[in-house]
Design a protein around this nucleic acid. Sequence first.
RNA 1: GGAGAGCUGUCCGAGCGGCCGAUGGAGCUGGUCUUGAAAACCAGUGAAGUGAAAGCUUCCGUGGGUUCGAAUCCCACGCUCUCCGCCA
Length: 420
Amino acid sequence: MIDLNLLRDNPDAVKASQRARLADETLVDQAVAADAAYRKALAEFEQQRAEQNKSAKAVGAASPEQRPALLAEAQALAAKVKELEAAASAASEARDQVLWKIENVVLSGVPTGGEDDFELVKEVGTKPTFAFEPRDHQELGEILDIIDIPRGTKIAGTRFYFLKGWGARLELAMMSLALDQAAAAGFTALITPTLVRPEIMAGTGFLGEHADEIYYLEKDDLYLTGTSEVALAGYHRDEIVDLSHGPLRYAGWSTCYRREAGSGGKDTRGILRVHQFNKLEMFSYCLPEHAEAEHAKLLAWQEQMLQACELPYRVINTAAGDLGSSAAAKFDAEAWVPSQNTYRELTSTSNCTTFQARRLNMRYRNEAGKTETLATLNGTLATTRWLVAILENHQQADGSVVIPKALRPYLGGQEVISPK
RNA sequence: GGAGAGCUGUCCGAGCGGCCGAUGGAGCUGGUCUUGAAAACCAGUGAAGUGAAAGCUUCCGUGGGUUCGAAUCCCACGCUCUCCGCCA
C-alpha cells in the first residue's frame, strides 16, 4: 500500500509513477476522492458515537425516574450510530479497494517502459568459447546422469524432475555456499513454512498479480508459496521491530512451487522453468532512508555469489512497467546460457520501500520513540536454476563439467563430474 | 479426529454489563540517595485513526451478535496447552 500522506499531499507524483509503470493513472483521483469520502463518513460516525457514549453514561448514572426518557433517547442514537458506522466502514473498504490497486511509487532512476526497456547496468565475466558444439543442460544432465526428467514427469507430470547423484549434491553444495556467504554477511538463516494462510498470501501481494501462479489446497485453505519471500515478509507481520542495531537480515531457504500457468510451451526443455525448485532468498528489514543503500548491498552479495560460481552475467535495471506491484526498483542478474546464446535471469532483487510493510503492518521505533513504517527488500541468492548456468558454462568437450572451485569443499573436494 | 483448559499491554497477571485503555507486579526510562554501583523511594512508560489544536473515536486472539452501554453475555473461527486416538 502506498503512503496515504503522499497521496494526499502530492497525488501528481503517484500519477507519474502509475504512468511510468504503464498502469492505470485514473486510480489516483479515485483514491483521493474515496479517501475524502471516508474521512467525512468517519468524522460523522465518530461525532455521533461520542454523543452515544455520553448518552449511555447518562443512562447508567440516572435515577430510576429519569431513566425511561434517557433510554428512549439513547436507543434512537444507537440506531443512528449503527447506520453511520456501517457507512464509515463501507467507505473505508471502498477506499482500501482503490488504494490497494495502486502500485508502489517507482524510484527515480528506474527506466520508463516495459519489459524490453531495461537499462543495462554492467556485464561481468567472460563468456566461454567452445571448440565444440556446446550441449544444453538437459543433455548434460542425461550424459552425467544427474538430472532425470523422464522419471520426474512419470511420477508428477511435466516440469518435474529428479536431481540425482552429483546433481543433487551440487544443488546442496550451492545452497550451503550461499548460506555460508549470507551468514558471513550477517544474515540469520531461516527454513520457512511453504504453506501459508490466505491473509499472508494476500498481505504479501501475491494473490493479486500472481493468483494463477499459485497452488492452493482447498481442503485446508492453505497456499503453497512460490518463494520464501512470502514467509520472510510475513515473519514480522503486525510487529514493531527494533532496528536501532541495524537492519534485520534473514536468509530463507525453501522449496518453491509455481503452477507456471500461461507459460505453456515456453522453456519446456530441462529445468529452466519448473513447478518445484529450491531457493535461498535474502530478505532485509531496514530504515526507509537506508533502503536504497541496502538494495545496492543485496545486489553486491548476489554478484559475489555469481562470481563464486564463476558465471558470466549481466545486471539490468528493470523498467517500471516490468516491476512487481510492491517493488519501487528492481535489479536482475542474468547469467549467460551458452545453449541459448543469451542471458537468463538467475537473481532478482527488489526494493519494496515501505509498500509491503504498510500492508503487513510492520513498524520500527525512531529515535524520538515514535513508530514508523519500515522498508523491506528481497533478493535471490541461489536457486535450482543456477545449475543450468553452472553446467553449461563449465562443460567440456567430452560432456564432463568442471565444478567451480568455491563449491568443491562442499562436494568432498570433487573437481569434475564426468559421464559414466 | 475426539475431550478439556486457556488467549488481557514488553512480560507475568487481576478484572462485578456502566466508575475499565484497563488493578497489581516485573521490566524499561528518568530522578532522589550514594565516591560509584546495588538496594530503597518517587515519577513516567501501549497502539491506530481523525483533527490546525484541544480533543474525539477505535483496539482486551479474530469476526459477528445481544444491549442504551461489552474485556465481561451469546455464536463462529483461529491459535496455544493437556489427555485420548491416528501416524510415511
